[in-house]
Amino acid sequence: MAAGRAPIGRITRGTTGTNRLRRIDRWISRHPALRRTDDPLIVDLGYGARGWTALELWSRLSRARPDVEVVGLEIDPARVDGAREELERVRAGQTAFSPDARVRFDRGGFEVPLAGDRRPVVIRAMNVLRQYDEADVAGAWQRMASRLQPGGILVEGTCDERGRVASWIAVDDSALPRTLTISLRLTDLDRPGVVAERLPKALIHRNVPGERIHDVLRALDEEWERAAGLAPFGPVQRWEGALRGLRARGVDLPDRSRWRLGEVTVPWEHIAPR
Rank of each mutant, 00 (worst) to 15 (best):
M1T: 13
G4H: 09
I11V: 15
T12F: 10
R13P: 02
T18F: 13
L21Y: 15
R26T: 10
I28K: 00
H31V: 12
L34M: 06
D38G: 15
D39N: 12
I42L: 06
G46N: 12
G48T: 08
G51E: 08
A54D: 09
E56H: 09
E56Q: 14
R60H: 08
L61V: 01
R65E: 00
E69G: 11
V70K: 00
V70P: 02
V71G: 02
A78G: 00
R79K: 02
D81F: 03
A83R: 01
E85A: 12
L87Y: 09
E88H: 10
E88Q: 13
A96E: 02
A96T: 00
V103Y: 03
P113L: 01
L114A: 11
V121C: 02
L129C: 08
A135M: 12
A145K: 07
G151Q: 05
T158W: 13
C159G: 10
V165I: 15
S167V: 02
P177R: 05
R178G: 10
L180G: 13
L184I: 05
V194D: 11
R198H: 12
L203C: 05
R212T: 05
E222M: 07
E223W: 09
G229P: 00
P232S: 01
R238I: 10
G245H: 09
L246V: 09
R249D: 11
V251N: 00
R260M: 10
G262L: 06
V266F: 02
P273Q: 15
